[in-house]
Amino acid sequence: MKKLSLFILSLAVTAFAAKAQGEEEESGLKISGSVDTYWKYDLSGYMDEDGGSNIWTSFANEQNSVSLGMVDLVLEQTVGKASFVGEISFGPRSESSVYGLNIQNLYVSYELTDKLSLTGGYMGTFVGYEVISPAGNFNYSTSYLFTNGPFQNAGIKADYAITDNIGIMVGLFNDWNVLQDFNGVTDFGAQLSVSPVDGWDIYFNFITGDHEMAFYTGDPGKVTEFDITTGYQISDAFYLGLNFANASAKFDDDSEDGFTGVAIYPQYAFSDAVSLGLRYENFKWKDAESYNAFTLTLPIKSGPLTFIPEFRLDSSDEDVFMDKDMAATGSASQFLLAAVFAF
């Protein structure tokens, strides 16, 4: 692994030195981003001591309150073959995703050729269907697959376009989500992307490595995740997305954990302004509870503003939710209204 990292680093330095002399076009600094806010009501009326509710997937968890998502600001610039992205965020959604760091993306990239580029820094993960930024998702609430997978991968990666329709990425990364890795750059990640026809993209993702805190626990172990993410714009109006993932952790004390899940995302656009989408997800923890979650979302878009009414119903084979009398129950439902302004 060490030899491979040294090889990638030396390749990057050599190629950069060779290419840095003749530069071409420049593009100005681009600024973009989003802000979002929401109101959510758990239909059981349950609220915990911290003001939270049932359905503990990432973000938008505050019960019956007009609450904040985040303000997200992206700076981007390309000069010749070199580019950078710096994305900073503030607010509860940011806090729950990057744990006080306030950085979603911070990396530099260099195009060695038209087909090959190298990128190093802290990047949104390549694994999974959904993303942290609410402007990048159709649904406002998030899936169990998203919540339990990686959010960011800091590291160095090489992207190579084999053809216009097939690409590969390989990279060496820190442990999931950490800016500084105290046990070395031990994760190996790879992605194969295929576009069989215009409008259909498929990503096969793989990441494995030794973690100091495997699966968001305090215990060290080896974590591996395999993921397929795909989306197909079948017609002007109809889109179908799918995400499958299997993850496993083998802890140093020989205990194991893991999850398997699949989510489908059929969406229908009635016009350029109004769409309706369903997310159905089946998610199962290894030797523990499983979930079935239905989310119906109706985004209404007016220029940069998207207004999102959403209804969600989750059920489990164990009584993991609470009703209003604080009794354990097997299902929970919620309604939310969110507004996302992307600029």
Partner: peptide, 17 residues
């Protein structure tokens, strides 16, 4: 175009008006 997970704008494939 849409901002992708890496903060860069990219084409939404298959959507043409």
């Amino acid at each position: 175009y849409k901002r992708n997970r890496y903060g860069k704008f990219e084409s939404i494939s298959g959507k043409y008006t």
